[in-house]
């Protein structure tokens, strides 16, 4: 393939990768931003969302489109409910201690994996896209649904941005993020805010999974990859900064695409992983995050 078509493909793939990254990392970024805890089970929430998308599509008569729409209701609701229980029964009881939360959510990660294996089985499960349209370029074809994912994730990101910056609830969340004590002093029910944020983070990642699973497959061990990628995005972008996460997602999506086209893809993963580690060491607040408090 000559250079320009190759570049076009790399850009398309990079854009899709960036959209997938930004979308999967959004929930983690939100939770970390407001609650200052790292949810290691984030990837498993993604996996559950994907599994539920498959299950709903299987149960729902009326073809892939009906299943897709139904999954948009079922998956975030169910994953959100699980997140609610997690927040109440686990995180609240350990008082959102950052280190204890990591250990507890590692435990949760195993429990969710086991549940998925027991109830959904070990096979990889394909989920049909709501529509199949192949865009034909002179040199190669490309999945129309992948571009839809880019548009949809743009919409979800805009929606979240709007809630955070333009609504009263967004304001409350930002105050809580800034300082828990101050928020309490102003009469903000911090515990309720935490509940809502944790549930919203989980529901968002479930939405991401429903959108993304037609271009991948549901499998009970699929959660690790989105988790690590989300870490990378959230850390490089600056913890809790959604704008930073989006920029980071595009940087990583694009560079990862280019490096893996010209060099070894494993090398690309090694480099981006090391990059994160070094960013954290040198600039703990991330490339775009401001030092908080």
């Amino acid at each position: 393939m000559s250079f320009l078509p190759h570049l076009l493909l790399a850009v398309l793939e990079g854009t899709v990768a960036a959209a997938v990254l930004a979308l999967s990392a959004l929930g983690l970024s939100l939770v970390f931003g407001v609650m200052r805890v790292v949810n290691v089970a984030h990837g498993e929430f993604f996996m559950l969302g994907a599994m539920l998308a498959w299950w709903t599509a299987k149960m729902m008569p009326g073809g892939p489109f009906a299943g897709f729409i139904a999954a948009f209701i079922v998956a975030p609701a169910a994953v959100g409910a699980l997140a609610f229980l997690t927040e109440r029964l686990l995180l609240r009881r350990i008082n959102y201690d950052p280190e204890a939360t990591i250990v507890a959510t590692i435990g949760l990660l195993f429990v969710i994996q086991q549940m998925a294996l027991t109830f959904f089985g070990a096979d990889a499960k394909p989920v049909a896209a709501p529509f199949s349209y192949r865009i034909v370029f002179p040199w190669f074809g490309y999945s129309g649904y992948k571009l839809f994912v880019v548009v949809a994730s743009g919409a979800v990101l805009l929606g979240v941005w709007w809630v955070l910056s333009r609504t009263r609830f967004g304001l409350i969340m930002r105050v809580t993020q800034f300082d828990r004590e101050t928020a309490t002093a102003f009469g903000i029910p911090v515990n309720t805010v935490y509940s809502v944020v944790f549930v919203a983070g989980a529901a968002l990642v479930a939405v991401a999974a429903v959108l993304i699973v037609p271009i991948q497959q549901a499998h009970y061990l699929m959660g690790l990859d989105p988790l690590l990628m989300s870490f990378i995005v959230v850390i490089i972008g600056g913890l809790g900064s959604i704008k930073g996460s989006v920029i980071a997602a595009f940087m990583i999506g694009m560079t990862d695409g280019v490096i893996s086209v010209f060099f070894s893809p494993t090398l690309a993963s090694i480099i981006s992983t090391l990059a994160v580690a070094f960013v954290l060491v040198v600039r703990p607040q991330g490339l775009f995050g401001a030092e908080t408090r």
Binding site: L9, A124, F140, Y142, Q216, L221, D225
Partner: peptide, 26 residues
């Protein structure tokens, strides 16, 4: 790996046969 499209440009134009053996859920 969970996405493969970016590897396909490496397939030379004069290829007669693509031999694929992949394992795992993807």
């Amino acid at each position: 790996e969970s996405s493969f499209t970016r590897y396909f440009p490496q397939i030379p134009a004069d290829t007669d046969v693509i031999y694929h053996v992949m394992v795992g859920p993807a």
